[in-house]
Every structure is written in structure tokens, then in C-alpha cells.
Amino acid sequence: MNAGATPEALSKARISLRESAIAFYTLWKREMVRYLKDPLDTIVPPILDVILFILIFGIALGVRLGEVGGFPYIQFMLPGLLMMSVIMNSFYNPAYSVFQSRWQGNIFDFLSSPLSYTQMATAIILAGVCRGLLVGGIVLAAALLLTDLPFAHPPLVIAELLLVAVAFAGFGCVVGLWTKGWDGVNAISLFLLDPLVMLGGVFYSPEMLEGVPPLEALTRWNPFTYLIGTFRYAVLGLELEGMSPWPGLALSALLAVGMLAWAIALFRRGYHLKS
């Protein structure tokens, strides 16, 4: 296959499994350190946001809202908030990091290294998943100080968290490659993710909107409703009318696999990476 390759060079060019693993680990670590170095910029704000949501909606207004599906409003809302934190944080890390590396030029370090394109994409996405789960974990810990959650189906809780984190970290990676400026990432989050999340039943169940047909339709047609619905079922054991958890789980799995494959394919093609 390598006609003309000299044996000596070939032995120096060999990449052992250990070397490959170290390279992957190094890139993952870089992506982690990038945001852990400035927790005041990256970790604290989303957590403060969520805590404000909990205090205002969950506690102050929740008292007036009473129960939803047999649960106090704060308990009903928490799985939605958790999902929102995981979605946004998994997305932001790769989106900003990939764009920043392209813009700063240090993407050259990865492109000219023995890392494979698949490794580059997966290490970056894995770090995004870790950030999503880290922030989600902190939010959960904070929430558990205020209320209890039953965790009705633990394996499903874990599966749904992981799948959603992978899906949105993968999407973030794609956006980080696609965008031509910082604005692109913000635009995607502002015009696509925020509305979909907000209209995906983080704060309400679709039935609560029955008097508002356009909003109800938006919610019923919004795929995020099913992601959040499935997670809510996993945490609370609450199955809302017409919302079996399984389509949501299937959708999460599909998105996770699809986004991961998309990001890897773009890296392999050198999309916005190579000229």
C-alpha cells in the first residue's frame, strides 16, 4: 500500500494506541481547561440564570401555579430547566471553541498533528458533553437543596442526559465550523435554540396552553417538547397526555448519532478548516 516507503521512516511514523489515546486526551483536556480556567465567565453565569429561574418561577410564582400533573410546580419545572442547561452548555462549548481556534489560527495545531479528524471532532464534542453535564450537575445539586425529585427511572435519566448532551455538543461543533464570526453562534442560540427550548415545555405542559392554539401547536410540533417530555418522565415518572417517552428517546438517539456523524464528516471534509 505504501509503495516507496522506507522501513525506517515507517517505524517512526507508526502511531501506537497509547500515543493515539494521549493525543485524544490532550485535545479533550485543552477543551476542558479552556472553560474551566475562567469559571466566572463560563460556569457561573448559566448557573446563576437557572437559580434565578428556580427562585422566581419555581418558588415565587410556583405557589400560585399550584400542581401540574400531580407535582408541585417547582418539581415539574426542574427537569425542564436541567435539560435547558445541558442543551445550552453542551452547545456553547464546541461552538465557541471551534470558531475561536479557527479565528485565532491554533486549529493548525490539531490539523498538523497525528490526531485523526474523527478524534478531533469527538474530543471536542466530548468536552462539550462534559460541560453540559457539569453545569447540569451543579444545577441539580442546587435544586435538591430546595426540593426533592423522585428520579423515577434512573437509567432513562442517564441515557436521556447523555444523548441530549451529545446531540447538542455535536450541533455546536457543526455551528463552530460553519460560522464566519462570533455573531453566528449567538444568532443560532438566540433565534433557534432559545425559542425552541422555551417553547419546548420547560415551564409548562402542552395542556396548559389549550386556550392558546398557536402556542399549543408550536409546542406540539416542537421536537424539543419530546426531548424534555422524556426527561421529565424519567425524573418524575410523569407521562403527560399524548406524550409517550419513547418517541422522545428515539429522537434523542437519532439526533445524537446524526449530529456526531455530521460533525465528524465536516472535519473529515476539512469544511472551513482547509482551503
Binding site: 493525543a23 479552556r34 493548525f108 498533528s113 497525528p114
Partner: peptide
């Protein structure tokens, strides 16, 4: 094209080494 956002001089070299599989 140095990875200078959050890495210092020595870290830049150490991370580079890592991408090449050096422990």
C-alpha cells in the same frame, strides 16, 4: 498561530507535545 487564549508559553509546548502522543 499560537494557542494563546489561555495557555502560557510552556503550556503551549506541553499541549503541542500531547497532540503528538507524548506522555
Amino acid at each position: 498561530a499560537l494557542d494563546s487564549w489561555f495557555l502560557n508559553v510552556r503550556e503551549i509546548l506541553v499541549y503541542s507535545a500531547g497532540y503528538f502522543g507524548l506522555a
